[in-house]
């Protein structure tokens, strides 16, 4: 049996939730005040995911950098691999919101897309 302590981020109350796991299966969730906390806690211990945001260099644009995000949630364990994958990426202006900046970030199958419009300089 294994116990994990988490803070629910569902609302400002921030309940302290304890999840009990047996062989990787959730057997009990306590400490949550509402159903949302239960759903959050189960996902957070079995398959935690995050949106990763960062920025990459742009050449020939009105800004030096363009902000980006993973189009969907990626596994939490891949956060560092995803940002590392952007290290040597440079894009050329113009860039539009939603443009794919990097396909298949760190093997997650999810692309990084632009979150800002950068016009070509001139």
């Amino acid at each position: 049996m294994e116990k994990k302590e988490l803070t629910c981020i569902g609302c400002p109350l921030g309940c302290s939730i304890t999840v009990t796991l047996e062989q990787g299966e959730v057997t009990n969730v306590t400490g949550n005040t509402c159903k949302r906390g239960d759903i959050y806690a189960r996902k957070e211990v079995t398959n935690p995911t995050r949106i990763v945001t960062s920025s990459v260099k742009v050449t020939g644009g009105t800004s030096a950098m363009v902000s980006v995000k993973t189009k969907e949630d990626i596994p939490k364990s891949k956060i560092f691999d995803c940002t590392a994958a952007l290290k040597d990426v440079t894009v050329t202006a113009p860039v539009k919101i939603g443009d794919i900046i990097l396909e298949n970030a760190a093997g997650t199958g999810i692309p990084f897309i632009a979150t800002k419009n950068v016009d070509a300089a001139g």
Partner: peptide
């Protein structure tokens, strides 16, 4: 918002999590 590139904006207005620049746009 142009420098707030993380997500979490617009949950109330657009019912989706946008980054700062996306919300501004």
């Amino acid at each position: 918002l142009n420098q707030c590139i993380h997500n979490g904006f617009g949950l109330h207005t657009f019912k989706e999590e946008l980054t700062g620049p996306e919300y501004a746009s």
